[in-house]
């Protein structure tokens, strides 16, 4: 598959790709997609939800074990107990 819009998908993935980097990404990814193209449809396969191991549900009980300090210890930028990011217009 040629001409996939790498710029669009990089934007979707929120990764900046410079004009210099773009050709290499374009080439490598298109090559990968080409190799993906050998997959048959497998349309004789019906996907069903496997119910042999259902999810274990948790009882509705509170277990607080982390303080504000511990939670924010790895934060790149914090202030007054909150994480700080550039002003976001909704």
């Amino acid at each position: 598959m040629k001409n996939i819009d790498i710029t669009y998908f990089a934007k979707l993935a929120h990764i900046a790709v410079s004009a210099e980097e773009l050709p290499k990404f374009q080439q490598d990814i298109e090559q990968t997609l080409e190799s993906f193209g050998n997959l048959p449809e497998f349309d004789d396969v019906k996907i069903e939800i496997d119910t042999t191991n259902p999810i274990r549900l948790r009882d509705d009980k509170v277990a607080q074990t982390f303080t504000q300090e511990e939670i924010l210890a790895n934060a790149p930028k914090q202030s007054g107990g909150c994480i700080v990011i550039p002003k976001t217009v909704e």
Partner: peptide
Amino acid sequence: TKKQIITGAIALS
């Protein structure tokens, strides 16, 4: 990693 991420987005689009 970036290549894989972008390819993954394409695969799911």
